[in-house]
Nucleic acid binder design. Structure first.
Length: 439
RNA sequence: GGCCCUAUCGUCUAGUGGUUAGGACAGCGCCUUUUCUGGUUAGGACAGCGCCUUUUCAAGGCGUUAACCCGGGUUCGAUUCCCGGUAGGGUCACCA
């Protein structure tokens, strides 16, 4: 089978998540069949089409890695002569006519002469769909001979580029009858249709701007991995035969079958997307995490940031979570000495006197560690563990951790110690003891 | 409202003419990760002592809650097939 598809957004708004899914399904289908896919900007509405939107769509497609076999996008605004020809042909055949309009509108529009028949088409996803076209009346297909409307342009373009499969959102299903009418009047061959279900907001209505994050760009800004978004979108409305949740692009392409796409709309669940994204971050190479952390952590000491990688990997769903952690001061103690509050040093199972005693003991034990080179967490733990077990873990480890971080919630003290290094550890233990003495 | 589409846990879904209707996300519970035999905050009530309620990072493990929209057929048997209803959605432009 020689497959030719197209993704035809109209550049009248930012790249929408629903559009992205339509593009993705076209891409998966085309790639699976090793076909050709066109990108086409439907910009016949000159007033609303903007270059800015074209650029946004292009950038979004590139980010998601939805690549085109026909790299140069087509623009309907550049094909006016062809449309004019088809419009003339239609009029000559008596399938369309120029009509005078109401006084308050100027010029003649072109109307399609409705044969008032039944149109039946076989949708790959929905099966037979039947429409009675009578209620369409003689619908308008061009503002004038030089200014075609959507349906006219679509038919011309799909025919001229030899499109074999039209995969588009379910919201286009009722447009299909008009388009079939025009195409048959012109004597064109019918493409095969597949109307995919819509992506829904939590309120079950079509996802739109008013539902918050609906543009691809926002997901990019929020710090989602493009592969995770692609993965999630592919599974919204389709289940691969292999099952599973995390699937590579190759696996998606290999298994994709448009006929098994579901019929009903699917609610977009950002929580599950986040979870999926986390799976990608868990598998990301250290360098990737280091890179993201590098420009999100204000203090930016590359050597320290590198040591933070495992700690960050374990705690984030999205890259922007790093921003949140930074804003909440979660990284401060790795770079700067914490400010300590006396009452907090003791408390967990020991009073100030006991805490002071434990801090001194810890200091002695840790002094024994090698002073050059990195110390690792296991080594630190080993050094103090016996003492902590004997004196009470909470009683010893709370002041230890708090002295190092100044926070009630943080990674365990061994990890922190390994990252900040022996000198800083000893200094902070001293500072904590000093603070206690002030009481 | 006309036309069209759709209908399995809250969400994404698997599945079948006979199943304990399976999984994932979210939720809840317990445990663990050596971070808590405790600490803290806010509100209510009270003369006060006190009492009650709410709140208390993250991850992992284990467990758990929860669904076949309704009615009629067909059938030995329907969640599954058919019809009707209901509900939801889409669409009804000189937008695309």
């Amino acid at each position: 089978m020689n497959v030719v598809t197209r993704f035809p957004p109209s550049p009248t708004g930012y790249f929408h998540i629903g559009s992205a899914r339509t593009a993705l399904f076209n891409y998966l289908f085309t790639a699976h069949h090793e076909g050709v896919m066109y990108l086409r900007f439907e910009d016949t509405d000159k007033a609303r089409s903007k270059k800015e939107y074209e650029d946004d769509i292009l950038a979004g497609l590139e980010w998601l890695g939805i690549v085109y076999t026909k790299a140069e996008p087509l623009r309907q605004s550049e094909r006016l002569p062809q449309y004019r020809e088809y419009l003339h042909a239609l009029i000559e055949k008596g399938a369309a006519y120029e009509a005078e309009e109401a006084e308050n509108r100027k010029g003649k529009v072109v109307r399609f002469k409705n044969p008032n028949t039944q149109v039946t088409f076989s949708d790959l996803i929905r099966g037979e769909v039947v429409f009675d076209t009578t209620e369409l009346k003689d619908f308008i297909i061009a503002r004038n001979l030089d200014d075609p409307l959507y349906h006219m342009a679509v038919i011309a373009d799909d025919h001229d580029t030899g499109v074999t499969h039209i995969i588009r959102g379910e919201d286009h299903i009722s447009n299909t009858q008009r388009q079939i009418l025009i195409l048959e009047a012109l004597g064109f061959e019918r493409p095969i249709y597949a109307h995919i279900p819509l992506i829904l907001a939590p309120d079950k209505t079509k996802l739109s701007k008013r539902h918050g994050a609906a543009s691809v760009n926002e997901y990019r800004r929020l710090g989602f991995e493009p592969a995770a978004l692609v993965n999630y979108l592919a599974l919204l409305g389709w289940t691969p035969p292999s099952g599973g949740e995390k699937l590579s692009r190759e696996k998606l392409i290999a298994q994709f079958d448009i006929k098994t796409v579901h019929k009903s709309g699917a609610v977009f669940d950002i929580e599950k997307l986040k979870w999926l994204n986390r799976q990608y971050i868990l598998d990301a190479p250290d360098e990737r995490i280091q890179e993201e952390a590098g420009h999100r952590i204000p203090q930016k000491n590359p050597a320290v940031v590198a040591k933070l990688v495992p700690f960050i990997r374990e705690r984030i769903n999205l890259w922007s979570d790093i921003d949140t952690m930074a804003a909440e001061g979660e990284f401060d103690y790795f770079f700067n000495d914490p400010k300590l509050m006396v009452q907090k040093i003791a408390g967990k199972g020991s009073d100030a006197a006991a805490a002071g005693k434990h801090l001194s003991a810890l200091r002695k034990l840790l002094e024994a560690l090698p002073s050059s080179g990195d110390i690792d967490a296991a080594r630190v733990k080993q050094a103090v563990w016996e003492y902590a077990e004997k004196e009470g873990r909470g009683a010893v480890l709370w002041p230890f951790r708090y002295a190092l971080t100044g926070r009630e919630k943080s990674p365990d003290p061994f990890v922190v110690a390994a990252i900040i290094g022996k000198d800083a550890v000893l200094a902070r233990l001293d500072a904590a003891k000093e603070t206690l003495r002030i009481i």
